[in-house]
Design a protein around this nucleic acid. Sequence first.
DNA 1: GTAGGGTTAG
Length: 502
Amino acid sequence: MKMTAWRSFHLQLQRALRLRFGTIQSPTLLLFTNSFHSFTFHTTLQYAYFFTSNFQSASFTDLDDALASFNHVIHMDPLPSRVQFSRFLSALVKMKQYHTIISLSKTIELLGISHDIYSLSILINCFCHLHLVDFGFSIFRKILKFGLEPTIVTFFTLVNGLCKEGKINQAIDFFSDLVAEGYQLDVHTYTILINGLRKFGKTNVAIGLFKGMVERGCEPNAVTYTTIMDALCKDNLVVEALDLFSQMRNKGISPNVIAYSCVIHGLCNIGKWNQALALLNEMVVHNIAPNACTFTILIDNLCKWNQALALLNKMVEQNLSPNVISFSILIDTLCKEGMVLEGDFDEALALFKAMEKSLLEPDLMIYSILIDGMCKAAKINDAKELFCGLFENGLQPDVYTCCAMIKGLCKEGLPNEAYKVFREMEEGGCLLDNYYYNIIIQGFLKHKHIPRARQLIDEMLGKGFSADAMTNELVAHLLHNNDLILRKLENHSEDSKDGNVK
DNA sequence: GTAGGGTTAG
C-alpha cells in the first residue's frame, strides 16, 4: 500500500512538473536538492505551499526540515499570510508534531499574525491529541469571546478530544447540545461518538445513537456498522451482529475486510468455527482479501481450540450424557497442562505460512500468539525457532513476546535460558513490572532453583513490586516442604506421622 | 486558498 501511494505521488509529481516546466529528466532526484528549491520557488514556504496544495502530502522530509523552513520565512518581509502559516501547521499536524505546533503558534502570534477560526481549530486539535482537552475548551471559550464563528469541524474536534480522554458523558452532553442547536452532524461525527461509547462499555447507548442517526437522516456507512457489530460481538451478541451484517448488505453497503474480521472473530469466540470459516470463504469469493488481522484471529482461535471440550460438546449434542468416567478423563486431561492446551498447531502453522506466502508481513502480535501457543503445547523448539525468526524479520520482541517465551522456557525446565531472555529484555529497554518478575520467579520456584528465585524476589521487592498470589503460594509450599525435610532430619520417629501431609 | 475524523487481532 505504502509503495503504491508513494508511486502514485511520484507520478502526480512528474505530471505537475512537466506541466509547469516542460520535460524534466529526474524529478525524484531534484526534489530534495537545494538547487531545486532556489530555482523553482522564491521561498521555502511557497515550496511547502506548492506541495500541500497539489498533492495533499506532507511537505517536509522531517521536523528539522520543517523548522529550517519556518526559521527562514519568519525573517521575510512581508511575512507570509495566516493562510500560508495554517498550511504549514497543517503539514506539521500530519507529522504529529503537536508540541511544536503549539510552540510555533505562539511565535506566529508574536509576529503579529492574528488567529482565525482555522488556526484556532488546529490548536484545539493539537491539545486534543495530547490528551489536554481542557486546554482545547479554553481556546473554544476564547473563540466565542472574540466573536469568531466555530464550525462543525471545531465542534467535532472537541467531541473527539473528549472521547479520546474517556470523558464520555461530557462528549454526549456536548454532542446533544450541538444536535439541539440544529447543527447537521455527519456520519463521521456520529461514528466517533458511537465508537467512544463502545470503548467505554456503553453499548446500549451506542446502539441508541446508531438508531437515532438514521431518524435524523444520517445514513450509517460501513465503518459505523462495523463499530456497532464489533461492540455486539465483544458482548457475545453475535446473532445480533450477524443481523446487522445482513442489514448492511441489504442496503447495498459492502462489508470490507474489517467488517468480515469482526464477525469472524465473534463467531470464533462463541465456538461457531464452521460458520467463521464459511464467512472466510465468502469474503474470498467476493474478492476481499483477508489481512494480517483476519489471519491472527483465526490462528489465535486455532491455538485456543480445545479438543477435549469440543468432544464433550459433541457428546451432549448427540444426546450422549457424559458419565463419571468421561468427566474423570476430562478433568485428568485438564490437569495435565499441555495436553488440553490448547489445540491444532499444525493447522495454525499452515495458516501462518499461508499468510507469509500472501506477502503479509507477520507482526509481533502474531509471533507472540504462535510462540505462546507452541509453548503451551510443549513445542519449545518450535517456539524458539519462531523467536529467532522474529529477529530475522527485523522485529524486536516486546514484553508480550518475551513473556510467552519466558513462561515456555520455565515450563520446560529451562530457567537459565528464561533468565537470559529476561535480562536481554531489560537490556533492550523493556520495563520490567510486577507481572514479569512474578512469572520468572515462579519459573525458578517451580524448578526449585531457590538461590536464583531469592535473588530475583529481593530485586523485585527492592524496585517496589510485590509477589502475587501464585508466587506467595509457591514460596509457602517450598517453606512447608523445607520444614518437613528439616523435621525429618531432626526426628526420624516423626516421619510416619507426616504421611497425611499434602 | 487555510482547520477535523471513525472500524478488526494478544
